[in-house]
Design a protein around this nucleic acid. Structure first.
Lengths: 163, 163
DNA sequence: CCCAGTTTGTTTAAGATTCAAGAAATAGTC
DNA sequence: GACTATTTCTTGAATCTTAAACAAACTGGG
C-alpha cells in the first residue's frame, strides 16, 4: 500500500524498452515467416508442434492450452481453424464426455516436416546466432524466472488479498 | 546453401521454450492489467507513452509507428480508436500535406498520469523484482542485440540477394 | 514542367483474440 | 441419489491485427 510509485530507473527503462522492442519485432518476424511459409501464425504453429511432441500426437484441449499458455477459448477458435485446414482433427475423450482430444493429422504432420527447417533457421538467425553461449544460458534462466512468476498457479500463491 | 537444417540442441530448445512462454504470459498479463485499469491494450498504452515523451506531445504517424515497431496500418486503426476515446487527436502537418500528427490530448495525458503507477508496478512485479541487477543488465544487452538484428534497416543490410 | 517512382496515411475485408455467457459433464457432499 | 460447485469446452459479439489496394502528395530526373 505504498502511495508513491517506484518509477523505473533510467537503466531499467532502457532494459524494458529493449525487451518490448525485441519481443514485438521477433513475434512479428516469426508470424510473417510462418504465415508466408506455412500458412499460419506462430501460435498456431506452436500448437502443431506441441501435438507432434505428444504421445499418439494428441492432447486434451485443456492440456494443450496450458502448454501453449493460451486460453481455452482462444484454443477452441484456433483448433477450429486448423481443423478446417485439415491439420488437426478432434476426437471425443472416452473417459470424460466433456473432453476433446486435438489430434495432429498426417497432413498436419507433413506441414511441420516441410516447414520446420525454415522456421528453425529463422529462429537461429534472429536469436541464437547473435548470442554467445553465456547469453543464451542467461536468457533461458531469466525467461524461466519470469515465466514462473506468471504461471496461473501464481494467482494467490501468497494470499495477497488477505493483507 | 545447406540442405540439412541445424536443429536446436536440447539446451537451445529449453531456452527457446522459456522465452516463448515468458513472452506470451507477460504480454498477456500486461494486456489484462492495462485493459482493466486503463481501458486499452498494452500496445495502445505504449503509443500514448511515446507521445507523452515527445516534444509538444506529438509525432508524425510514421515516426510513431517506427518507434512502436508496428505497421502504419495498425497505427491508423489504433489512433482511430484512441481518437474516439478522446486520448489522441490528429492534426495536419503544415510542411507535408500527406502528413498527420498524432497528438496526446490533455485527457490522454491524464489517463497516463492516473494509470502509470499501476503499470510500472505490474512491470516491476513481473520482471524487475524477480531479477538480479546482473540479470537485468544481461536481459537488456540480449534484447538490444535481438532487436537490432530485426530492425527493418536490417533488410538487405548485407545484400543477401546478391549471393 | 512532366513523369515515373516513392512516401504517407487510410481503407476494406479477412483473420485472430478477448470477454462474457452458457451447455454439458463431472466431483464432492450431505 | 440429489444438490451444488467445478471443470471442460464452445459460442457470439466486440475488438484488434493483417494484408493488399489505394489516393494523395512529394521527389528527382529529364
Amino acid at each position: 500500500m505504498n502511495d508513491e510509485p517506484r518509477w523505473l530507473t533510467a537503466e531499467e527503462q532502457l532494459v524494458w524498452r529493449s525487451y518490448i522492442e525485441a519481443a514485438t519485432l521477433l513475434e512479428d518476424h516469426l508470424d510473417r515467416q510462418l504465415q508466408r511459409d506455412a500458412g499460419m501464425p506462430h501460435v498456431y504453429y506452436g500448437l502443431l508442434v506441441k501435438l507432434a511432441e505428444s504421445p499418439r500426437r494428441r492432447l486434451r484441449m485443456t492440456e494443450l492450452a496450458k502448454y501453449a499458455k493460451i486460453t481455452r477459448s482462444r484454443l477452441s477458435h484456433a483448433v477450429a481453424r486448423l481443423e478446417k485446414n485439415g491439420w488437426v482433427r478432434r476426437e471425443d475423450c472416452p473417459s470424460d464426455k466433456r473432453g476433446q482430444f486435438a489430434i495432429l493429422t498426417d497432413e498436419g504432420h507433413e506441414v511441420l516436416r516441410r516447414t520446420a527447417p525454415g522456421h528453425v533457421n529463422a529462429v537461429r538467425q534472429a536469436v541464437f546466432d547473435r548470442l554467445t553461449p553465456e547469453q543464451q544460458k542467461s536468457l533461458g534462466e531469466i525467461m524461466r524466472i519470469v515465466a514462473e512468476g506468471l504461471q496461473p498457479s501464481e494467482a494467490g500463491a501468497d494470499l495477497p488479498w488477505l493483507r
